[in-house]
Design a protein around this nucleic acid. Structure first.
Length: 300
DNA sequence: TATCCGACCTGTTGGC
DNA sequence: TGCCAACAGGTCGGAT
């Protein structure tokens, strides 16, 4: 499942293989893949065709390619635009030889005006992800991403502001980690891993977290993401791959996620899995004590 | 206003 | 062998 490290691996691939090239024909093979482009698939293909790719950027799990003018004229008459991508659950951005057979779940194909004979393909089995075109705000971020918080690997991430937000919220720590308007890039896997490393139960109220505890949690979030990035991300199956179609290896290093009934690597207690918000939470019942349940005062 | 939770989507797995 | 339910989970929008 692509979270921040996996998206960063893809961004680096796009930076290497796509930046500087000018797009040619664009084919939308499944309209749902461009559903966030409100003007529709035809407009998406027309606007994207003939544009020079200037850069490959990322915030949290979103990545985008700022577009410049092409031989056919300006990209738009109302400022700078970018191709925005979200991989969702199963999205892949692949750079493939133009004559390679179509993938089973190929949704969008972008050709280029050069002699490299490779094309950019958006492949997505579950179609939770998608591509769209958006104007850039003054911060250089697509307007659709303006509400997304900076991610913990961003040097401008506001740790003090994050702590203040946690103190003010009446929510629990894992919910907060997955709230992309508070901190971006964290998904179910790295949330469970960071909580296990910090020794925090997923249901702990955020308002009770001290400043040092929040710092510790953020340090573990950064560490687990950095380690995953170093080995190409986490992949349980063929659904997450880099632009060359290769999987990462971090799943071999996970301490909590997906390890139900296996011994905790700290204390040996079997890891538990609990249904949580239509998904699962994995935790060590000894290292990560659940919060005490508040009982109402007895009447009389 | 803040928070919660179901829907979206499809391939895989396990039970019957 | 075939059918069905459960499961995976990021994001959005409606409900509370």
């Amino acid at each position: 499942m692509p979270e921040l490290p996996e998206v960063e691996v893809v961004r680096r691939g796009l930076e290497r293989w796509i930046v500087g090239r000018t797009t040619a024909e664009v084919a939308v093979l499944h309209p749902r893949a461009v559903r966030r482009h409100v003007a529709g698939a035809a407009d998406f293909a027309a606007r994207l065709s003939g544009r020079r790719v200037l850069d490959a950027r990322r915030r949290g799990k979103y990545l985008w390619l700022p577009l410049g003018d092409g031989p056919s004229g300006p990209a738009s008459d109302d400022g700078d635009w970018a191709l925005l991508a979200h991989l969702g659950m199963s999205g892949q951005l692949l750079v493939q030889p133009a004559d390679a057979p179509d993938e089973k779940h190929l949704r969008v194909r972008v050709g280029f005006q050069d002699e490299l004979h490779t094309e950019l393909r958006f492949v997505d089995q579950r179609t939770f992800g998608g591509l769209s075109l958006h104007p850039l705000t003054e911060d250089g971020v697509p307007d659709a991403v303006a509400h997304i918080a900076r991610d913990p690997l961003d040097p401008e991430f506001d740790e003090e502001g994050f702590h203040r937000a946690l103190r003010a919220r009446r929510t629990t720590v894992k919910r907060a980690l997955l709230d992309q308007s508070l901190i971006s890039g964290v998904g179910n896997i790295y949330a469970d891993e960071a909580l296990w490393r910090t020794g925090l139960h997923y249901d702990r109220p955020t308002a009770a977290l001290t400043r040092p505890r929040v710092s510790e949690l953020l340090a573990h979030v950064r560490a687990v993401m950095g380690e995953a990035l170093a080995v190409g991300g986490t992949s349980f199956d063929s659904l997450y791959v880099n632009v060359n179609g290769e999987s990462g290896y971090f799943d071999r290093s996970l301490d909590a996620y997906g390890r139900e009934d296996e011994p905790c690597r700290r204390c040996g207690t079997p890891i538990r899995r609990r249904p949580w918000m239509n998904r699962s939470s994995y935790y060590c019942p000894r290292c990560q004590r659940p919060p005490r349940v508040r009982r109402p005062l007895a009447a009389g």
